[in-house]
Write a protein that binds this DNA or RNA. Structure first.
Lengths: 87, 87, 87, 87
DNA sequence: ATTGCGGTTTTTGCCC
DNA sequence: GGGCAAAAACCGCAAT
């Protein structure tokens, strides 16, 4: 590091401070994400305690998601057609 | 459906109402999770606009996570020892 | 390499001949796969010549696949239920 | 549908019959492609049973492909030169 | 322990 | 060449 350069200054064309900020924001969000994933796992575990097979629940969730996605895709297709035709 | 059975009651050993609740909780959390994943994507996109390669950032994040995990692991081990010895 | 050992013999616990065979089978199949992918590309190109937007066609294909998958998933779920209940 | 229009006729500038044909050809080819992909997976699985790590095999296949591509590229370049010079 | 499976991430190809 | 969608690869869990 050269004189009169602190950690927040551009070094070799790379703004260390900004990079650090991005990384920390990402790490924070990743933590949140993992926390939620854990919550989901907990629900599966809890439901298992009431006799629901996680496998079945997952299948249901997946099916519902597929259906929702298919619906969204159908809407998008319609939109494409409308754009192609001009309203 | 048998007599004297409402929608919230056990049917064939399956409590429909409770199941529905679990599914909806899971779906809600999945949505949250995806929202956060999108936020993360946004950050990568934004950082790219400032010349940071997402690929590199991901590597850094991964590395830091590994280091953090290793440290946590070491701490846990130490804790185990202390417990074994009695502080 | 030891004497009286040809290329087809186990070397260091690895059967070179068998490995070679696997690799070649995989490569042959990969080629076939790429050939088919090219055929698909050709169809998109040809259809474009008749005024069909590849983008739309792709969307339709995607939608139909999603619907087919959702149907398959629903069937699988039903199967799971039947197994859980015992027919 | 308007009068005097059969299923094979242009509707709103779109020939339904031809479109259908394209889509079905694509879908058929996609299925073939997936079938081959499954075959490849099977080979990896089988090879694993003989102690070959799929991960390693994949690396070898990828490497050989890169080499083959590089050679083809070099040949093409040579061809270009020859054409430019007139043999 | 080992293998299938689900999810996530990384890479590739495509179209603009 | 740069973004977007599809495919492949890697990984971690879970079940047996």
């Amino acid at each position: 590091m050269s004189d009169k350069t602190d950690a927040t200054t551009t070094v070799g064309g790379v703004s260390g401070e900004r990079l650090k900020s991005y990384i920390e924001r990402i790490e924070r969000l990743e933590e949140e994400k993992n926390g939620i994933a854990d919550d989901i796992t907990d629900i599966y575990t809890e439901s298992k305690g009431f006799g629901f097979e996680p496998k079945i629940i997952r299948q249901i969730v997946r099916l519902r998601k597929m259906e929702a996605d298919a619906r969204a895709e159908a809407d998008a297709l319609l939109e494409t057609y409308r754009a192609a035709v001009g309203v």
